[in-house]
Write a protein that binds this DNA or RNA. Structure first.
Lengths: 112, 112
DNA sequence: TCTCTATTCAACCCTCTGGTTAATCAACCG
DNA sequence: CGGTTGATTAACCAGAGGGTTGAATAGAGA
């Protein structure tokens, strides 16, 4: 599976997004992350594996704890992909306008 | 399923992302959209249904054709969600720095 | 009308996914 | 050492997802 699909799929689950939100406040152990959810610890462990494979978290080792850390790099790819379509929803963004501006005749006309 | 999960899930498939990319160039019929892919027309039809339920496309009716149109509004939500984490991957973005600037004592604020 | 084209619906097949419980591994502590 | 805590692995289950083929629907056109 390609990287982008992996990241989008990882983000398609509300539990996993909540985990990332929690990790934005700082590293946490599996038990700490699982605490707010009405599901088993094992289920959370699976979610963490999905996030790890998507590159969205890394896990260290501190005695019997496995602290999780947010790794936001893949979100940059998501953002870049989404930005391709920004002109379709952001009225301030007008690629055509920018393009036409480069065609303006004037003192910089030698860049033909 | 919540809206955000629906959109992320729809984007987690490379075929569906390719369909959106194609639609960025303009509306297209199901046959036109299916042409580049080595899968059946019915499979593409299913993908379109997923995109439609996620709000990423709308479909009209022109005789026996069902032209598809890109609807980028849900991508704005994706972008907004991702932006929550921008400070973790964009070095130019430093929320703490901005915050501290507002706390600067003295009338030196106009110094830029 | 009958036919052709564009598209969807229905049924089916695997595989993947999100959850469970039970068992296991790893590390600290008495 | 044995026991407790933190976390993962294993086996299983129900449901969803992406694909197929075949039949059905909607409309254009002869």
């Amino acid at each position: 599976m390609d990287r982008l699909s992996l990241v989008f799929a990882a983000l398609a689950d509300p539990t996993r997004r909540a985990i990332l939100t929690r990790l934005a406040d700082g590293d946490a152990t599996v038990n700490q992350l699982a605490e707010p959810f009405p599901i088993s610890l094992q289920a959370v462990s699976k979610h963490l594996k999905v996030l790890e494979q998507a590159g969205l978290i890394t896990r260290g080792r501190d005695a019997q704890w496995r602290p999780c850390r947010l790794e936001a790099a893949p979100l940059r790819d998501i953002s870049a992909w989404t930005d391709q379509y920004r002109r379709f929803w952001d009225e301030r963004y007008d690629r055509l306008d920018d393009y036409l501006r480069t065609l303006q005749p004037g003192p910089t006309a030698e860049e033909k």
